[in-house]
């Protein structure tokens, strides 16, 4: 499989504090990857860099078969290039209905004038319904997103990401605050999504990662501590010391 995203030698510091330190990372097309690490390890910052929210002090981030550099692109251009992101805190548009949230995310021309004259076709509406079914929100299509439970908001956000049809999906702590049953559903959604695209899941919870059953990257103090299967990394002494030992 060819490399979809390559991060090499990236560092970023906030007021002298090195949040990311010479980090390198690669992910292939249609790969599912879990990124774990203690709080403050730099997981969210790592996603910020890929999605253009934070500019690194040094290093390269390239994407796609033409090895496009993401560092000079705006957040919206990066998203249009096919990188979708789910935030740690569920961020959906609470004042709008589930259907509107999904419709906004559907992969369409994003320019202001195209949006102004956009009329949803029957196919678009069917797609929104399919997505709602996939994330278990068929019955809530016309409810305001603000009325949903925490777990439902997380799914809606995942649904919006799927609607974007990204080639690379970055998911930050999707299972935070979910009930065990909701967690299971989320695992299924992510595994399903990874069949057609690359997915990076940042997660705290070891059990959740184990269920994802994929290659794991352990971050610590802004760089990669270990990488491999879940059993491989959990047996790594450094990992046990800094993370599992706590």
């Amino acid at each position: 499989m060819s490399t979809l995203l390559e991060v090499s030698g990236v560092s970023v510091s906030f007021d002298g504090f090195k949040a990311i330190n010479n980090l390198s990372f690669q992910i292939a097309e249609r790969e599912l990857r879990a990124v774990i690490g203690p709080n403050g390890a730099g997981k969210t910052t790592f996603m910020d860099i890929i999605t253009g929210k934070t500019r690194p002090d040094e290093g390269r981030v390239t994407y796609g078969e033409r090895a496009l550099s993401l560092l000079s692109m705006s957040e919206s251009r990066i998203a249009q290039a096919g990188i979708g992101r789910k935030f740690q805190r569920p961020t959906v548009f609470e004042d709008q209905s589930v259907a509107d949230n999904l419709m906004m995310a559907l992969k369409k021309d994003r320019g202001p004038f195209a949006v102004l004259f956009f009329k949803p076709s029957a196919a678009d509406r069917t797609r929104v319904e399919e997505l709602a079914a996939e994330i278990g929100l068929s019955g809530a299509l016309h409810r305001k997103a603000g009325e949903l439970s925490h777990g439902q908001k997380q799914w809606l956000e995942i649904g919006m990401l799927l609607a974007q049809e990204p080639r690379l999906l970055l998911v930050d702590e999707p299972a935070a605050g979910m009930t065990p049953a909701e967690r299971e559903h989320t695992t299924d959604l992510l595994r399903e999504a990874a069949k057609t695209r690359a997915v990076v899941v940042v997660e705290h919870d070891m059990e959740f990662v184990r269920r994802l059953d994929c290659k794991v990257t352990v971050l610590h103090e802004g760089s990669v501590l270990a990488e491999g299967s879940i059993d491989h990394v959990t047996q790594n002494e450094k990992v046990i010391e800094v993370y599992l030992g706590r």
Binding site: S76, T91, Q164
Partner: peptide
């Protein structure tokens, strides 16, 4: 329409709209 959706979304959470790919 969708234009209204997008501008209300910008009002409430501009950063999120950018990550959806809209040129805010």
């Amino acid at each position: 329409g969708k234009f209204g959706s997008v501008i209300r979304a910008i009002r409430d959470d501009e950063a999120r709209v950018r990550f959806l790919g809209y040129p805010v």
